[in-house]
Nucleic acid binder design. Structure first.
Lengths: 208, 208
DNA sequence: GTCTATAATGTGATAGAC
DNA sequence: GTCTATCACATTATAGAC
């Protein structure tokens, strides 16, 4: 019988280290230290570094992608859905534990598509509805009601996600280059995006 | 006297390997093989792996950030500048040699801000004008002319960059999850963004 | 399940001949 | 400047006692 607490400690420590320095940069000893367990325990529970990473990946991947999209299946107007979707993203990504997750996922997906893109797809398919179909339906409705111009649902979704996620991935860059070292202003900017992003998007698609 | 061709071969091979697998994932032997030179040559010319990486970083960083912004200093209308800026980004990023550069930069900037953010800042400061000030001026003009609503220049610039760069970073993900494996459709989508992004932005800021 | 000790390997870096 | 040979070390992984 597994001791769940040890396993959980390892997974949490591993997530921390992997998000900080990536798969290649991570050291098993560092993870063991963070988890406050013996290094041999890592192999006892997860066999290898790669398998440990996969376990972490399976936990974090759905957080920043399909889970947040649940809101698109709710009983709301398109504009409300956009506001709530952005709100969810900013809330999740502002969290210190989560802000480095997107970059880690994009990276490992890029270096090893064969190994990881199926995991992403699985968690996407675990949704009990198709976000793009749902979005298309909402868009059609609002177009018919004369409230918005038509926009391709893929374009809309990708624009929303880009504007939510990219600035978080580029936080270090923004702080230094765009906000000239004023970290507070940068953080404030990211928080304010809860309002500015929906405004920017809705302005773009609403009928004149 | 240095033999320039060898040095150049190494830098090109290093860029290739580093963009593919990152700093930690890269192997000096692999770089030597790609450059078709002896591994000892890498140390002869660049002392260490870290210094080689820094040399590469100094070359690639300006490509995706300050160089492209030159267009903001041209004699064009705000709308024209937006169109040209997006066009430049898509052109550069569609190129196979460049598409993985943004992710590499964001990553190493994140893992080691102290070491790399100054390099980014230097290349930004090498511009002979301030892109944000210039953008602010253009925005003010168009607001006075009644052509657009006011938008914070930082917000505008970051939105543009987000929508140009993020989908390229997330290409593997988009291919698999959003475009269900249809790579051609995904590539077509990225190319079409030359037109859809400016349209999306201009629609958002123009006066009703 | 947990630990120590150690094997097995990979890898950045250098010395020294040419 | 270029090469071969090799060092020195870090790191994943495992064997085996408790």
């Amino acid at each position: 019988m597994e001791k769940e607490s040890t396993k959980k400690q390892i997974l949490e420590a591993a997530q921390k280290v992997f998000t900080e320095v990536g798969l290649d940069g991570a050291r098993m000893q560092k993870i063991a230290d963070e988890a406050d367990v013996n290094k041999a325990m890592l192999h006892y529970y997860f066999k290898s570094k790669n398998k440990l990473f996969k376990s972490v990946f399976r936990i974090i991947a759905p957080k920043v992608f399909p889970e947040i999209l649940q809101v698109l299946n709710k009983d709301m107007s398109l504009f409300e859905k956009i506001e709530k979707l952005v709100d969810n993203y900013i809330t999740v990504l502002i969290n210190n534990n989560n802000e480095k997750i997107p970059l880690l996922i994009l990276n490992e997906l890029n270096k090893n598509p064969d190994e990881f893109s199926d995991i992403m797809l699985e968690s996407f398919n675990s949704l009990d509805f198709d976000p793009l179909k749902e979005l298309e339906k909402d868009i059609q409705e609002e177009v018919l009601a004369g409230k918005i111009r038509y926009i391709d649902p893929q374009e809309l979704l990708i624009n929303i996600i880009s504007m939510c996620i990219f600035p978080v991935c580029a936080k270090t860059f923004l702080q230094k280059v765009i906000f000239k070292g004023e970290k507070d202003k940068c953080q404030q900017f990211l928080i304010t995006r809860r309002e500015t992003i929906p405004k920017f998007i809705i302005n773009s698609i609403k009928s004149d």
